[in-house]
Design a protein around this nucleic acid. Structure first.
Length: 175
DNA sequence: GCAGTGATCATA
DNA sequence: ATGATCACTGCC
């Protein structure tokens, strides 16, 4: 099949839908002249102003400003004093949303993913395009029955409603 | 079960 | 300026 750019997909409003569609996409990394393709296996949606699990829920700050920006850019932040987290910014401009990429290829866990792919703050704010060395390509969308929906990981602080939203999506079968 | 590790943000 | 927190991992 023809590989399509996900630019139009990422601009949409429905972040959980985008996240699920990205389970039918691959992360492509170019590093030291070698290009490797990692089919995405696990994602989480962080959606809008009201999502108490989202960095954007308490308004715009220096760190989260990218979430309010243009879709299709990487939002990479540092946490727990040692881990980088990789997100793709989604939604229209001024609507804060992103999809956290938690697993791809054989790699499980968002910090392991960034470590293995050499992803750091150097990519923060860069466009998801070959120029940045890290981009996305769309494959066939996953079937609905091949997607597991669960609450997001590590967001107990988000209160009874938002910590339980089923905004984590895992692909059942390897692609 | 919990230590590690340091940027970020709210509070002052 | 200070202190709590953290979209995690690895080892106990």
């Amino acid at each position: 099949m023809r590989r399509r750019s996900p630019a139009a997909l990422l601009r949409k409003w429905n972040t959980p839908a985008i996240a699920q569609r990205l389970l039918g996409a691959s992360l492509v990394r170019r590093w030291h002249g070698k290009t490797t393709v990692y089919p995405i296996t696990e994602v989480e949606a962080y959606d809008g102003f009201d999502d108490l699990a989202s960095h954007a829920s308490r308004g715009r700050t220096k760190r989260n400003a990218l979430m309010f920006g243009k879709a299709g850019h990487w939002y990479v932040y540092f946490t727990y004093g040692m881990h980088w987290m990789l997100n793709i910014v989604t939604g229209p401009k001024d609507y804060p949303a992103a999809v956290l990429i938690r697993g791809a290829g054989d790699i499980s866990g968002p910090a392991r993913l960034t470590k293995q792919l050499h992803i750091t703050g150097a990519l923060n704010g860069r466009s998801a395009s070959p120029q940045s060395g890290l981009w996305l390509v769309l494959n066939d969308p996953p079937r609905k029955k091949d997607i597991i929906r669960t609450p997001r990981i590590g967001v107990a602080y988000a209160g009874p409603v938002w910590s339980k939203k089923k905004y984590r999506f895992v692909r059942k079968h390897r692609v």
